[in-house]
Design a protein around this nucleic acid. Structure first.
Length: 512
DNA sequence: AAAAAAG
């Protein structure tokens, strides 16, 4: 069942009769970053900026040359044939490289996308969105317009990537066909469940069914062989379960026309889920000539980026320079602690005392064991904290997350389980109890994990603060490398045991 | 080191 309903090339696939919205927006315009509409109505939107968006389409076939799209806030016209290179100093926030000659126009409104009335209702009534965020404005036409090219999309943390692929899945699925047509693969169970919640909210009026392919808790566990085949149109899950369902022929691939990898850089990294992900792609391709692949993440390091551009053939690409990835509303700090014990003292004396008044906090640690150790130390001192890590039972993981989401707990200790994607708007504080380092190294920072961790605060442009606890020279050097990598200066909170200094930091972050 | 998987 192809998308034969529409082939007028310039307009996205309509799932309802096309409105009078008409032809695409004018071509030569600019866009600017920072126009994400918040979900809480009391935050102002920057409606004032006249922002007409447009993506210039460039052919990269033979020459394979990459040309920038538009400068962000500069008044300069878009790059001409001479094209500024990707590494230009005045790069735009998002660089678009389109493949082929399909013209794309940015969506100024959700109406521009020719979505079904039911889906629009979900967007406005359930999600309370007003207009597309930047990444949504740019990527959605690319996702929805035939010939439905593959897409690699990088965008800032908390900028609304989930909406992009959820909308993509919902609008490309045919509710009358009772078979999986959209598949989304996520690195953690928690993220799959969270994405599922978004999809069900947004798709509430569409009648589209969705199922979560994640390990079940012990009480409702059914062996794969005993479960019925999936008939839901959308499946969101984690690699192991998805592979298993496919292996047992419970998840058919023949109707899947859109395959999404959330946190795609990690899903396709050697150190991550590369084998699983490639397996899933291959299994679908075996029975399925044309399946659109979407790769979303806030980060793509050079190695992964080089690889994923080969995985997606002839696809469109949206990238952000690493120096422009750290969020402006997020203030980063470092605290030099004389020893490890001082780290605990900072957490109980400062974070737990001051921090609770400014919102919720996530403390990242580097192992399950240190999570448990820190948890024990704080609980023994009489503080209420919870901890999540992968060794917990599924039902306990659920409970911890649910309590945190409900605001019943203020401080959550976590391994990198929650480093990516976890979207809790009340999180204003992120603590790096230990800085993330690359696997098998002692002093090489994991820049991507760092960025994802701190992105748990400051969702959708909110204010937030990050405290990096540093106690020896090694950690000092890691911090310095991180600062250099993202071209940010991380202010020191000093002295480490000063309440005033922490208050000042929180004030500077706009949290006090 | 973490994550995913009833391998």
């Amino acid at each position: 069942m192809a998308d034969s309903t529409n082939d007028t090339a310039t307009t996205p696939t309509p799932t309802v009769p096309a409105s009078e919205a008409g032809p695409a927006a004018p071509k030569e315009t600019k866009f600017s970053w920072g126009d994400v509409v918040d979900e809480s109505p009391n935050e102002e939107t920057k409606e004032a900026e006249a922002e007409e968006l447009n993506i210039k389409s460039l052919t990269i076939d033979e020459s394979k040359k990459k040309i920038n799209d538009f400068a962000d806030d500069s008044e300069e016209p878009a790059a001409d044939g001479s094209g500024r290179r990707l590494d230009d100093a005045e790069d735009s926030s998002i660089t678009a490289v389109t493949s082929g000659d399909t013209p794309y126009s940015s969506a100024k409104t959700f109406e521009d996308l020719n979505l079904s009335a039911e889906l629009l209702k979900g967007i406005y009534v359930e999600m309370k969105f007003q207009k597309p965020s930047k990444i949504q404005a740019i990527s959605l036409p690319m996702i929805l317009t035939p010939p439905h090219k593959d897409l690699i999309a990088q965008a800032h943390n908390g900028s609304g990537k989930t909406t992009c692929f959820v909308l993509g899945m919902l609008s490309r699925v045919d509710p009358t066909i009772r078979a999986p047509q959209a598949l989304c693969v996520c690195p953690t169970r928690e993220l799959a469940i969270q994405n599922m919640a978004v999809l069900q909210k947004m798709g509430k009026y569409t009648g589209i069914l969705a199922e979560c392919a994640v390990p079940m808790d012990t009480s409702n566990h059914v062996p794969v062989s005993k479960r019925p085949p999936v008939t839901a149109q959308v499946v969101i899950g984690t690699p192991g379960t998805i592979k298993n369902w496919m292996l047992y022929k419970k998840l058919g691939a023949s109707h899947i026309k859109i395959l999404v990898f959330d946190e795609a850089d990690h899903m396709l990294a050697e150190d991550g889920f590369k084998d699983d992900s490639l397996r899933i792609i291959k299994d679908i391709e075996k029975v399925n000539s044309r399946c659109q692949v979407l790769l979303f993440s806030a980060t793509f390091n050079d190695t992964v980026r080089n690889f994923v551009t080969r995985v997606t053939k002839d696809g469109n690409q949206l990238f952000v320079k690493k120096e422009e990835l750290s969020l402006e509303a997020l203030k980063q700090f470092k605290v030099h602690c004389p020893d490890e014990l001082a780290k605990v003292n900072v957490i109980k004396g400062r974070i737990l005392e001051l921090g609770e008044s400014v919102g919720q906090t996530i403390i990242f640690v580097h192992s399950r064991h240190s999570a448990a150790a820190l948890h024990k130390a704080l609980v023994e001192l009489g503080y209420e904290v919870t901890t999540i890590q992968g060794a917990l039972r599924q039902e306990d993981r659920n409970k911890i997350i649910q309590e945190f989401q409900a605001g019943l707990t203020q401080v959550l200790i976590s391994t990198d389980l929650l480093a990516r994607g976890f979207d809790q708007q009340q999180v204003n504080l992120v603590i790096n109890y230990t800085l993330p380092v690359k696997y098998n190294t002692r002093s090489e920072p994991d820049y991507e994990v760092y960025l994802h961790r701190i992105g748990r605060a400051g969702r959708f442009g909110r204010k937030g603060a990050v405290f990096n606890l540093i106690c020896d020279n090694r950690e000092h050097e890691i911090m310095a490398k991180i600062e250099q990598h993202f071209a940010v200066q991380v202010k020191e909170v000093t002295p480490w045991d000063s309440e005033e200094a922490f208050k000042d930091a929180l004030k500077e972050a706009g949290l006090l």
